[in-house]
């Protein structure tokens, strides 16, 4: 690489990585980017990040000279009371690109939430629904689990219950994670899906897939 005489910096003429951004789900924060325009195989990248307000750029060793176009920075951005920037530089055949930065990333507001887990049980005339909010990303499987309920105290659930026989759908909004729907028809299939809804900051998950269960048959019939 040619050195820029006056600044001693490498003169970087390779096109820049594009669309450098965080993709975050349940605060698993992964940096993504697209390869520089017109560069085929063989491009390598390195990544750095910084905490907003401190500004010291920190290299990410596991994402040095990588050929993939993503880098998991969940560990480095786990403190959701801070905000972050990340940056990527590309290398090919001795040439390099400029550092390309993300917008400022706020893990608390810029993450997406998975729908809750839905567990069902039924009796002859009722179904019981137990919802479990997803966990915040954690460093290791045996690490301490933090429910997103602790991160977003105002978290609520929207629950949809579909009677497969009548095709009628009912909606419930609940703050705690259990719901019993009584007085149902015996021997009838009901399908349930649920969504997480946070009002401040305004975030909501999609609806979960439908979980179905049938009420038990009426023994007296």
């Amino acid at each position: 690489p040619r050195t820029a005489a006056h600044t001693g910096e490498l003169y970087c003429s390779l096109p820049n990585p594009r669309n450098v951004h965080f993709e975050s789900i349940n605060m698993k924060n992964v940096l993504h980017w697209s390869a520089p325009e017109g560069t085929g195989e063989g491009v390598l990248y390195k990544v750095k990040y910084s905490v907003y307000g401190i500004g010291k750029w920190i290299r990410k060793p596991e994402c040095r000279n990588i050929n993939r176009t993503w880098c998991d920075l969940s560990n480095e951005t786990a403190d959701y009371e801070e905000q972050y920037y990340a940056s990527v530089k590309a290398f090919l055949n001795g040439m390099c690109s400029d550092w390309m930065e993300t917008a400022r990333f706020n893990p608390l507001t810029d993450t997406k939430l998975d729908p809750p887990m839905v567990n069902l049980s039924s009796t002859e005339k009722s179904i019981s629904i137990i919802l479990t909010a997803p966990e915040k990303w954690k460093r290791s499987p045996d690490g301490e689990s933090v429910s997103l309920l602790q991160v977003y105290p105002g978290l609520q659930y929207n629950v949809s219950v579909l009677n497969k026989k009548t095709k009628k759908r009912w909606f419930f909004s609940i703050s705690n994670n259990t719901l019993v729907v009584p007085w149902l028809e015996p021997g009838t299939a009901y399908c349930v899906s649920a969504q997480i809804h946070v009002t401040t900051p305004l975030i909501h998950s999609g609806f979960s897939k439908e979980y179905c269960i049938a009420t038990l048959k009426d023994k007296t019939a």
């Binding site: 759908r169 009912w170 909606f171 419930f172 909004s173």
Partner: peptide
Amino acid sequence: MVKDVSSTVHLDT
């Protein structure tokens, strides 16, 4: 108090 009214809201039995 009902906030989300995207569909039929269940009140009670």
